[in-house]
Each structure stands twice: as C-alpha cells, then as structure tokens.
C-alpha cells in the first residue's frame, strides 16, 4: 500500500528529516528553504540549513559576511529552536571526507596541492555532488554524542538534528544532482566512492527525504516544476510539497476582474466617477490610465489561476508564501516561516 492514497497528506510528513528545496532560478528557492528551516525549528527544533552551490545566498539573505565551511548557529527561534547554517563547498567536503573516513589529512593536503581536489570537485559533477549530498545525509544520520563518524554513537541516541534543509541546485539540474548513484556509476563501478554514493542514495530514496519544489504562478516555473516532479518520481526519489512563492492578494472583485480581462476592459465611466468623487484631478484621463493597469492586473490574475490549477493537478500539497514588498530580511523570514507553520508545516 503506498502512502498518501488515504486522505490528504500532511504538508510536512513527520518522518521526513531531509528536506531538499529546489526551484527554477528566480523563484526564491533560497528564501523558501530558509523559511522552511525556521518553521521546522519551531517548538524547540534543531535544524541544519545547508547551501551547496557556493553562492553564499544564505549569508546574503541573513545580512552577514560570507560563511565558512562550518555548521554555525545563525537563527534562534522562539521556543528554544535553532537553525544552524552550513555553506558546504565540495573542496572542504572532500578534505573532510578523506580525514573522516581514511584519516588521511596529509595525503588530502598533498592531493589538494596537486590539483586533485579541483579534479574531484570540478571534473565530474557526480563526484562533486556525492560529496555535497553526502555532507547533508551525514548530518541527517548523525546522532548526539557522536564525535566523528555517525557510527560512533549508539543507534538509540537521539539525532543530532531534528531536520536538515538543503538549498539545492535549480530544478533543471536537481534530478542529476540527487541521482548521485548513477552519476558516479559511470565513473566508479566499485570502490569507496561508489560505496559512499550507495549510502547517500539510500538516504535520499528513503521515507526520511522530501524534495520540495518552489514555483511561481508563471508559465516557465510551473512547467519546470511539472517536469522536475515527473523526473524525480521516475527515479524513486520522494517528492514533498510545491511551495508557491510570491503570491499576491487579489485586489479586485470577481465581476470587475472578469470585465477588465474582457475585450471591453474595465468600466472607465465607473472608474472615472469614483476618481472624481475621491477628489482627484483629471478623472477621465486618469481613469483611462488606471484602466490599463487594471487590465494588466486582471490578465495576470487569470494566468495565475490557470497556473495554480496546473500545480494543483500535480497532486502534491501546495503551500503558499506571500509576495513581500521590499525584499527579504530576517524579519521577513520570520513572517514567511509563520505562514508555513499556519499551513501545517511542522516536524
């Protein structure tokens, strides 16, 4: 029996501990990932937010200088929750991997001088990706009391992080990024890298993982979301929610929207009368100009509705985030996280 066939799925499945957030460029993926991390840290949760593209998008979002390769506590959430942030870069991850699993610190540094790290991290995205996803899955498996390897701590110890949220590559590259197994398979049929990839893949395909898609109510992001979901489903990677970002509140009544979108356009006489009553100058001319703005808005609302219907047809829970005037800062992030909590996002 597959899950989700009986009744609506909760937006954030309680078993999910690795939340991978993707989306077309420009949809606000980083912001959505940060808001999700914050929402999951409500009520005392301990959450790790990982960025993997070396863009320092989280540092920019939080208004801090570039972050080092280090899990650093960046947000404390009322109720005792914390969000730690890690800007993962493949080079540092490789050196850490070598040290952690092979105790090869000096050899790692020698390799670095040789350009081997450049090799492993640039030549084959498969190797690069397995290091980055490996870092995130390691944090998912890590238990409290573990000093180095996850295996150090007893399997009964509570997890170090309640949830790990990854600000992942964009939709166009997400399937390849997460399907590290087959990426690496082309290069390494056996050996430690292959084993590592298998272990990472096991976590990614498990019920612990959800891949969330950030979309806007625009044609291209919706199309990419549809394609991305189909691609991941085909790979057996669990898809979570669709986060509809930058949603605007409706301003016009239904009848006015319909009229404005029609060939006649908005009722300029009514508009002009209203503007006159409000004491504005040149009500006639102004009404004509505003009618143009109203029409553009109505067409956009129509398009947004068609796009929402298409997203609903994908059969995934939709979560909404409002459009924020004036960009995103910490306060805005708090508001977005609250919106997610109100829609049922919790651990």
């Amino acid at each position: 029996m597959s899950e989700g066939e009986h009744g609506p799925r909760p937006p954030a499945d309680a078993r999910a501990r690795l939340h991978i957030v993707t989306g077309k460029g420009g949809t606000g993926k980083t912001t959505a990932a940060a808001a999700l991390a914050r929402a999951l840290a409500a009520d005392g949760g301990r959450v790790l937010l990982v960025e993997v593209e070396g863009r320092q998008g989280l540092a920019t979002l939080l208004g801090v200088p570039p972050l080092p390769y280090e899990e650093r506590e960046m947000l404390s959430v009322p109720g005792g929750g914390t969000v730690c942030v890690l800007a993962a870069d493949p080079e540092a991850a490789l050196l850490e991997y070598l040290e952690m699993f092979y105790g090869m610190r000096r050899a790692g540094q020698a390799l670095n001088r040789l350009g081997a790290v450049d090799f492993a991290t640039t030549i084959a995205p498969g190797l690069r990706d397995v290091l980055l996803t490996g870092k995130a899955t390691e944090a998912v498996r890590r238990r409290r009391g573990a000093r180095r390897r996850s295996a150090d701590a007893p399997a009964t110890a509570p997890f170090h992080y309640d949830a790990v949220v990854m600000d992942a590559p964009p939709t166009g590259r997400i399937a390849r990024f997460l399907n590290v197994n087959s990426e690496v398979a082309g290069l390494a049929r056996v050996g430690p890298v292959r084993n590592h990839a298998d272990r990472v893949m096991e976590v990614i395909r498990s019920a612990q993982t959800r891949v969330h898609f950030v979309s806007l109510l625009e044609e291209m992001p919706v199309q990419e979301t549809r394609e991305g979901i189909a691609e991941l489903a085909g790979l057996g990677i669990p898809v979570g929610t669709v986060l509809v970002n930058m949603v605007r509140p409706p301003l016009l009544a239904e009848a006015d929207l319909a009229a404005a979108a029609s060939a006649d356009g908005a009722d300029t006489d009514a508009l002009s009368a209203g503007l006159k009553e409000a004491g504005l100058e040149h009500p006639g001319e102004l009404a004509a100009a505003l009618a143009g703005e109203v029409r553009a808005h109505a067409l956009r609302v129509g398009l947004e509705r068609r796009m929402r219907a298409e997203l609903e047809a994908l059969g995934r829970p939709l979560l909404e985030l409002p459009l924020l005037e004036g960009g995103v800062d910490r306060a805005a992030l708090e508001l977005l996280a609250r919106r997610l909590s109100e829609q049922g996002v919790r651990r």
Binding site: D256, A273, A287, V294, E325
Partner: peptide, 30 residues
C-alpha cells in the same frame, strides 16, 4: 483616495484600481 472611497462604501472598482496603482508605484520606485 482609495481609503476615502472605501469609507463611503461606493465605487469599489475605483478604490481597487487606486490600490493597484499604489502597489505599482511602489514597485516602480523599488
């Protein structure tokens, strides 16, 4: 102007259009 129309409860289209315009002006300024 939108608020004054909303107080009187008349001309919902004009008040919505004015709010829309205000949004658009702020967007443009940004």
């Amino acid at each position: 102007a939108a608020e004054s129309l909303e107080r009187s409860g008349s001309h919902p289209l004009a008040s919505a259009a004015l709010r829309l315009h205000a949004d658009r002006v702020r967007t443009r300024e940004r």
